[in-house]
Design a protein around this nucleic acid. Sequence first.
DNA 1: TATGAATGAGGGTTCATTCAT
DNA 2: CATGAATGAACCCTCATTCAT
Lengths: 197, 197, 197, 197
Amino acid sequence: MNKRSGLETKKCILAASMDVFSRKGYTASSIREIAKAAKISIGTVYIYFKNKEELYQNLIENKKQELTEKIGYIFLEKKSAREALKDFIRIHLEYAVKHKEFILLHIREHGFSFGIEKKRAFFNQQIEIIEKIIKKGIDSGEFRKSDPGNTARIIMGTIRGIILTIALDNVNVRPKELSNFILCALLKDKQVKNNIP
Amino acid sequence: MNKRSGLETKKCILAASMDVFSRKGYTASSIREIAKAAKISIGTVYIYFKNKEELYQNLIENKKQELTEKIGYIFLEKKSAREALKDFIRIHLEYAVKHKEFILLHIREHGFSFGIEKKRAFFNQQIEIIEKIIKKGIDSGEFRKSDPGNTARIIMGTIRGIILTIALDNVNVRPKELSNFILCALLKDKQVKNNIP
Amino acid sequence: MNKRSGLETKKCILAASMDVFSRKGYTASSIREIAKAAKISIGTVYIYFKNKEELYQNLIENKKQELTEKIGYIFLEKKSAREALKDFIRIHLEYAVKHKEFILLHIREHGFSFGIEKKRAFFNQQIEIIEKIIKKGIDSGEFRKSDPGNTARIIMGTIRGIILTIALDNVNVRPKELSNFILCALLKDKQVKNNIP
Amino acid sequence: MNKRSGLETKKCILAASMDVFSRKGYTASSIREIAKAAKISIGTVYIYFKNKEELYQNLIENKKQELTEKIGYIFLEKKSAREALKDFIRIHLEYAVKHKEFILLHIREHGFSFGIEKKRAFFNQQIEIIEKIIKKGIDSGEFRKSDPGNTARIIMGTIRGIILTIALDNVNVRPKELSNFILCALLKDKQVKNNIP
DNA sequence: TATGAATGAGGGTTCATTCAT
DNA sequence: CATGAATGAACCCTCATTCAT
């Protein structure tokens, strides 16, 4: 019966459950296993979280906020659309590399009964950010004309796919490579650095 | 207790399990539910499949073959790289629309203990096909110069992401839109039809 | 895995659960123990009963019907109120002796969240039967005048109390003794056989 | 963390546990809930009571003493058997109305593994008191001749049943009604006030 | 081939109890 | 005295799997 502060134990549970959940998925993870990974007893988990679902939700919410904040801060002051898009892509990819576990969990349990609406909302919000960047680029003459909504959805899809590749297959894709590819498709003049290394 | 031929019953189980598995994922699906959906008894499932895992594997294998065959047939005789790529994208997207269920299942259980190697192999094989197309395009002067391996991985990632979007969020992305976007990034001269509707 | 008919197993579970429930009460009884007493596995219990509560309810319902039927049949054709009351008391007491277990269970879990309304209804129905008998007795001049409702409630209470005594303390009270006592209180002329043995 | 005297806290726990126990029964009541009702922490309960069982026993003992004392005081100096019996009935019924909770608890957990002997002893002691009253009544010529042991048991059973009715069904039975009924059965001459209101 | 009764390990969750603070 | 974090056994229930019919 190690006496620790409540907060410490809670963090410990969250870390352990992130590990277990993302390896096995929600249903296949057991509270028993999470408790073991956190080196506490089963009962203790239930002191900090009402039940399995709440533990899971808590986990998701925590991580999502982290990313949302990062994205939010950086954009408004950017000068060119091109630079903004580059940053957007970089942040998402860096986050994915850093939080492979979470990404896996997030994708895997998308479509899971609870919390799906929130997930979709997050995704749509990201698309809107891209849309704004594209509009700005078209207005400033940097980008070719195109339907910003459609294009934004395709770009977000692309980012999602690359993140999936990173998380699932442990392949490293550098942000610059992806930026170059996408900018190739967007820029009026092909003044991108050639993406041959 | 409808008398059917063995094959019929087996197909019936496979169809039912596709339905249940893709709605709930592997772990959360129960043999009881699958049997009910197939309108047979639990015991009968075990006549045709050794256990739950084998049933699942069988399902995956079935569907994967379908796609592989479609992709395989069409390529070799294509003329331009541009057309080949368009077809490749179209076939994947059409397949995704038609088999949302399977896609979901596939992604969800990626990383699931068994069968992961096969999944990765399939994916890499698709990347190789794209790589060949890109090389051909560069050689023929259609495409800009780039590292074919990297670019192929990015394109496959993009396709994967769009498929994910289609399957998860029920959004419709037309193959032509995606082709245009990708070709924009690849073609030497921006001679793509503008992707504004 | 003894193969029996479903009905047999169900009866076996009901018998075992009657035993366990009435010894320990609802909450303190565990499905494990009931299964053990019935010499079957835990899972089997859940084939026949949706859950613990349903098993309990089923038990109660079964036994109550038995008694209700016995009481119902015998009354209408009776001649004197005195004989009717004697029979009523005898049937209740005989039933109590035979089903001590059930009586215990019934009383113990009275006030338990579920099923209370049904229990009260049964009880009130019994009171009404006594009331009718008393009215008949007063009309025919057998019984002294009194408020039939009040008296019926007291008599039913008395029966209940004696049954409780039988069930809880394993004391034998012969129906004739109780009848004599009650008739003493009801009859106009003290023409009861003296209740000294 | 209100500072109170130890005694105060103990009383508070007893009151809370009476409330909870009699609503839910022994097994279904949790220390957590009792602590909450007493507005103290779980640990504190264990300062005053060794464990759940001891808390329960303590409660029972407390209440039983109250009643025993009341019964004890009043009897010896009574004049007629008739008055004595009336008082006995009145005191029991008044006590029942006042302590429905306790009655419920007492009945419900009768047969519970521990404490049953004490309960039976109390009951038998009450029967003995009635027996003495009846003997006195027969000797003095007030009561008809009967077997005092049997009759006492029946009367005690009757009282118990009425108390049960009061506690379980929230029905009000006035002591006088019950006294009248019982005296009707006992008195030589039917010189009881007619129990029609 | 098809059934469905039977099994028991393992899931989520609760709860009496302990003890360092 | 009082707290509340920690424990783990035991609860109800589900499920993959087996097998006599």
